[in-house]
Design a protein around this nucleic acid. Structure first.
Lengths: 179, 179
DNA sequence: AAAAATATGTCAACATGGCTGACATAAATT
DNA sequence: AATTTATGTCAGCCATGTTGACATATTTTT
């Protein structure tokens, strides 16, 4: 019942001639559902190692995200960070305050616009980020290698296409930094 | 500082001759970090549409996960569901109770082992799942198409390789159903 | 048959990290 | 001078995760 039912009432995808059992459409749905679940399981394992490391600091995933994006974007403003994380400033303020109090993040008043508080990792913050990132990099390196030659490019294209179209340019800009 | 520092202290990957600036290693790290971020942004957008649908039912992501895996695995036991979701039975009990009370999930005593409570979607549950799955299927269909021929296979391989090695056989079994 | 293990449920308490709403301040812009 | 912007903060609520303890029915083991 389930995999078939998942397509029928929705009825948005390819649906050649309704009524009779439709093997191609069912196989199509099956493929897509497996992909959906791969995303779920992949993400689940992907965050598991950082979660353990964070526990030793009494930090959570929210701290990880802040440390990651501040580390990757030194001098990022609060507004920019909110836009990436898609949370409210009150939620961000809580974890950011803890990170600052405990010396992992520091703020500097913007030079051009002195209303801004630009965010930077301290050296302790950089070390924490390294520890959090190491297992994720190992995992991703290994996974991309498994895709074979060309697999990495295809994987990236698919992941990018998974984004809302309106977000793609922004995300491409955020993820790519020139050293 | 950031992308380079992200590799140095970890020092597990390719690290030819330490000391001097290492352009290849930095480019390698950059590639991997971009992949890490693609996973973050991809997952963020991936759950955004279901979240909106769920809000209309006053349900959350936790309900989505239960409905999804019960729908895909009719007759699944509580223990099996706990193993997939990796949460405590107390956490599961809360959302499961709500789903049962509101008529989206039903339980049947196991025939062979009468201690088990086997879980099924009701017709309302099936309809909810269809609504939740539709935008995700559209999104994934579109994304896989963007990978070009062969891209889908490569994408799947990479996603599977992203899992903890010990989980791969189990996950492969969970995601693949014969109709 | 009795004992132990298993599958599930439940009560209670707590933590994290989302959210809304209201209000404050300093700096930039109009 | 007035308004807008960037940020901070207080207060409280909600969803969903956690631990620990204990209860019940059923199956398995001894």
């Amino acid at each position: 019942m389930r995999p078939a039912a998942a397509m029928e009432p929705a009825g948005k995808g390819a649906k050649p001639h309704a009524g009779r059992p439709d093997a191609p459409a069912a196989a199509d749905a099956e493929r897509l559902i497996e992909a959906i679940e791969l995303l779920f399981f992949g993400y689940r394992d992907f965050v598991s190692e950082p979660d353990e490391i964070l526990a030793a600091y009494e930090f959570g995933r929210a701290h990880h995200r802040v440390v990651h994006f501040v580390g990757r974007n030194p001098g990022i403003t609060v507004a920019e960070l909110l836009d990436i994380l898609r949370i409210t400033k009150q939620s961000l303020a809580r974890v950011l305050r803890q990170l600052i109090e405990r010396g992992f993040v520091e703020q500097k008043t913007g030079e051009k616009d002195r209303r801004q508080r630009r965010l930077y990792l301290t050296s302790a913050g950089g070390e924490l980020l390294d520890r959090l990132m190491a297992p994720q990099m190992d995992r991703v390196r290994n996974a991309l290698a498994a895709g074979g030659p060309g697999g990495e490019v295809a994987w990236r294209e698919v992941m990018l296409a998974l984004l809302d179209e309106e977000h793609r340019p922004e995300v491409e800009q955020i993820i790519s930094k020139e050293p």
